[in-house]
């Protein structure tokens, strides 16, 4: 059915009437319908994709409510079992889970706050000020991003050991405060920042700090939200460095503690699944809180103006 035939079926008295509202609405409805048909395969594809991405998560929920020995059987359980509280009690008992959750939260929050401050300020500086050595400085930042972690492990470890910081949280947090990716992300974000706004603030007599806090920060909120989410997730999931630095079970972070549940001749999968499930909750919460800003932050680079 085409738009022309749609028009011809409308009452002739109304067709092309003085306001012309009705036909246009019908047209809009028709095109929306046609668009819907066109989009059906897209939605189908998206539905399949979301089912596929939800399945592992669903399996995590199911697995965390069964005994480990049931997870090796054929067929695999498809419904939640009744072992959730038993698994939770064991998780708490074997790795002191509530404590390590708190540890992880404390580390991730502190790291996110300070690392974001460094990234935002450094990124702003590199993007808006012109000074001697700016290119070199940016180059150094980028190059540290390119050095693989494995190369850094031993020298960094030695630095922490000679500072006497092994088994302390500052050793987990400090070495990565200046996060190259974060700085670069913020620099790119501030490159698009309208200089005229800053100039206007200056003309009005605002100092550099005042300009930064009052003018720049509020406008850059979406990008900062994206940065915060990224920084928090990377610290929350970070494994190898906390593993190397922390030597006391009560100081472990969640990934390090969960790793101790992998045994020599047995793996406590239901405990692991439950722990991983609980570990994703703070991330989901964070994403829900920052979702609006996050999405516009991601699109900020794509759709200019």
């Amino acid at each position: 059915m085409t738009a022309t035939s749609a028009l011809s079926s409308v009452d002739p008295a109304r067709r092309g009437g003085p306001d012309g509202r009705e036909p246009r609405e019908a047209l809009a409805r028709r095109t929306a319908f046609a668009r819907g048909i066109l989009r059906a395969p897209v939605y189908l594809l998206l539905a399949v994709a979301s089912v596929l991405s939800v399945l592992p998560f669903l399996w995590m929920v199911i697995a965390s409510t069964h005994q480990t020995s049931e997870l090796f059987g054929t067929p695999l359980p498809v419904l939640p079992g009744g072992e959730l509280w038993v698994n939770l009690a064991r998780l708490q008992e074997s790795v002191n889970f509530s404590q390590v959750m708190l540890n992880s939260l404390a580390i991730a929050v502190i790291y996110t706050v300070f690392s974001s401050i460094v990234s935002v300020m450094a990124g702003y500086g590199l993007a808006t000020y012109r000074f001697r050595g700016r290119g070199v400085l940016l180059g150094v930042v980028l190059v540290t991003m390119m050095i693989p972690m494995q190369v850094l492990l031993v020298p960094l470890f030695q630095m922490m050991a000679s500072a006497g910081w092994i088994d302390s949280y500052q050793a987990v947090i400090l070495p990565f405060l200046a996060n190259a990716f974060g700085i670069f992300l913020m620099r790119q974000a501030f490159l698009d920042f309208p200089l005229t706004l800053i100039e206007a603030a200056r003309i009005d007599g605002a100092g550099e700090l005042r300009t930064f806090y009052r003018i720049v920060l509020p406008v850059a909120r979406p990008q900062i939200a994206a940065l915060v989410i990224y920084t928090f997730i990377s610290q929350w999931n970070s494994f190898i460095w906390p593993l190397l630095m922390l030597n006391t079970e009560d100081k472990y972070t969640v990934p390090v503690a969960l790793n101790t549940m992998i045994g020599m001749s047995r793996v406590d999968y239901s405990g692991l699944m439950l722990g991983s499930l609980l570990a994703t909750l703070p991330l989901m919460l964070l994403f829900l809180v920052f979702q609006k800003q996050f999405v516009s932050g991601l699109l900020g680079g794509a759709v200019k103006g």
Binding site: G135, V136, G139, V140, V143, T144, I147
Partner: peptide, 9 residues
């Protein structure tokens, strides 16, 4: 610039 940066890093 990248050379200096590399040395610095």
């Amino acid at each position: 610039a990248p050379v200096v940066a590399l040395a610095g890093a």
